[in-house]
Each structure stands twice: as structure tokens, then as C-alpha cells.
């Protein structure tokens, strides 16, 4: 008799979220040019690129803060339109921005349910919110937080990041986008956040990780998408590329290993 518990689902062959030929301009500045991006469940897709390559704009298009000028947005294989953050979260896309958007004067449970509180009749259902928050943190194997009723102002940088990530996971989300989650963290807290990022994907979520730190990218990513001057320079498996090739792609948009002219469609494997 097989004793193994339910094994992790095999990587789906179809992306859960896919952008095709996305363009976005702000006035005369053409920020995104025909950008493609595929994100798969159970995988961490790292999004890398130099400052100004268009990472943040792309994320805001995914999250519905900006609407793309042209291009297609597919979710679970079906074309969708995303015009507001509410549209994105209805699909199951949650974004954790660098500033985390947590309220210092509220506790962890209040933050996780901020704006979406559970009610029982006229009053807040504190018990069930507390229970769900606790289960979510336990499901992520978070052991660094001593009490879920402590204020966010008393938490360390890594703990805040953890709370922000748990908040994004709480809503049965399918895709979680993390913008520089390890920036400004020390070594051991970075390690904890990276393990959390990996665990999200191993639990079946599709994770997009934006990072400047190549160690972080290689530590957890299954796939790496490189943006160069608003174009997709490459989307490759982390098992097929080296650090120096990624740096080449980030700085010049191409790398010898994949032949010259890795422009619009880039390397797509």
C-alpha cells in the first residue's frame, strides 16, 4: 500500500496566467512593448530586469492598477479583462507591493482582513477571523510570529513580509505576485522569506517573484523571465541558464548562449 500523502500536482502544461503582446504607454513614453509572460501553478516565476525595464508597470497591469493599451490577458486559458484591482482579486490574483500596505496600528488579524472583514449579523466575527488567520499562518508553517493579536508595528521586517504574504494567500488566491520581498531584510530573515515563497508554490500557487538579487532568484525560481527596455528578452527554466547569462540578458537583452536577436519573442522554453 502506498503511504505517501497526496503528492504535489505535476506542473500544469497550461499557464494559469498568460499575457500576450501587452503594450503600455504613459504619454510619449512607451514602457511595455509587446510583453509576453506565462505563469504556471506550482511554480515560482522570477521576473527580473534592470531599473526602468518595466517590471513594476507590468505588475500593475497584472494587478489591474493600470489597464494595458493593447494585448491579451488570459486566466486559466480564457481571455479576461482586468480594469481594476477588484477585477484582479476576483480572479484570484493578489499582489504584495514593496511597501506591504500594512497598518501599523492594527494587529495581524485586523490587517489580514482589512476591508474584507467577516461579520456575524451586525458585529465582526472575531473568532472566525482569528481562526482563519491562525490556520493560514500554520499552513505556511510560519512559526516566527508569537501572537496573531500583536500589532504590526511590533513586528520585524521579515515578520511583516510574512503577514503581507499570508494576507495575499488568505483569499483562495491562485496567483501571488511578490515585489522585492527580501529587499532590506537581513540574511536570516531573507532565508525565511525565501523558504516561504518556495512553500507557496509547493502548496500549488502560481508565484511571481520580482527581485534584483540573483541569489534569491536562483534559490527559489523554476522559471525566469527577463525584461529588457520594456520587452520580454527571455523566459527560461532555471535549470538551463547560468548567473552570467541572466546578467547578460538583463544588461543587453541577449546572450550568446541563446543566439543573437533574442528580441521580441526572446528565448521561450
Amino acid at each position: 500500500m502506498a503511504l505517501s500523502p497526496t503528492p504535489a500536482p505535476p506542473p500544469a502544461s497550461n499557464p494559469v496566467l498568460e499575457l500576450r503582446g501587452v503594450n503600455k504607454s504613459f504619454g510619449a513614453v512607451h514602457v511595455l512593448r509587446d510583453v509576453d509572460l506565462s505563469v504556471y501553478e506550482g511554480q515560482v516565476t522570477a521576473l527580473v530586469g534592470d531599473n526602468g525595464a518595466g517590471k513594476s508597470t507590468l505588475v500593475k497591469c497584472i494587478g489591474g492598477i493600470h489597464t494595458a493599451d493593447s494585448g491579451e490577458y488570459f486566466f486559466d486559458g480564457a481571455p479576461v479583462t482586468v480594469h481594476s484591482p477588484r477585477d484582479a482579486s476576483d480572479l484570484g490574483v493578489e499582489i504584495v507591493y514593496q511597501d506591504l500596505a500594512l497598518c501599523d496600528n492594527l494587529d495581524i488579524v485586523q490587517n489580514m482582513f482589512l476591508g474584507r472583514e467577516r461579520r456575524r449579523g451586525w458585529v465582526l466575527d472575531e473568532d472566525s477571523m482569528e481562526q482563519i488567520a491562525e490556520e493560514t499562518l500554520a499552513g505556511l508553517s510560519v512559526r516566527t510570529v508569537s501572537s496573531i493579536r500583536q500589532r504590526v508595528s511590533s513586528l520585524s521586517g521579515g515578520q511583516r513580509q510574512t503577514v503581507a504574504i499570508a494576507k495575499a494567500v488568505l483569499w483562495n488566491s491562485k496567483v501571488v505576485v511578490l515585489d522585492e520581498p527580501t529587499a532590506a531584510l537581513g540574511v536570516s530573515q531573507t532565508a525565511q522569506v525565501l523558504e516561504l515563497v518556495r512553500r507557496l508554490a509547493d502548496n500549488g500557487l502560481a508565484v511571481v517573484l520580482i527581485s534584483h538579487n540573483m541569489n534569491d532568484v536562483f534559490a527559489v525560481a523554476d522559471r525566469i523571465a527577463v525584461l529588457y527596455l520594456g520587452r520580454t528578452a527571455a523566459q527560461v527554466n532555471a535549470g538551463e541558464i547560468t548567473h552570467s547569462q541572466i546578467v547578460e540578458l538583463i544588461t543587453s537583452g541577449q546572450t550568446e548562449a541563446f543566439g543573437p536577436g533574442a528580441g521580441r519573442n526572446g528565448v521561450n522554453r
Binding site: 508553517s141 532565508a191 523558504e195 518556495r198 541569489n215 534569491d216 532568484v217 536562483f218 548567473h243
Partner: peptide, 29 residues
């Protein structure tokens, strides 16, 4: 976790592509 870029790069250059095709690198849970 602190040297993953080097680890992965060396691994991807040195191991056979078929032996690492389905390889996952993880830290102890």
C-alpha cells in the same frame, strides 16, 4: 540560500541536462 546563483550556475554547467531535468532544490522543511 546565500549562494544559490553560484550553486545553480555550476550545476547547470556541469551536470547532464537529462539528469537535472526534473531536479528540485529545496531546503529542509
Amino acid at each position: 540560500l546565500a549562494t544559490a546563483a553560484q550553486v545553480r550556475s555550476r550545476l547547470n554547467r556541469t551536470s547532464l541536462s537529462v539528469t537535472r531535468e526534473h531536479l528540485k532544490l529545496r531546503t529542509a522543511a
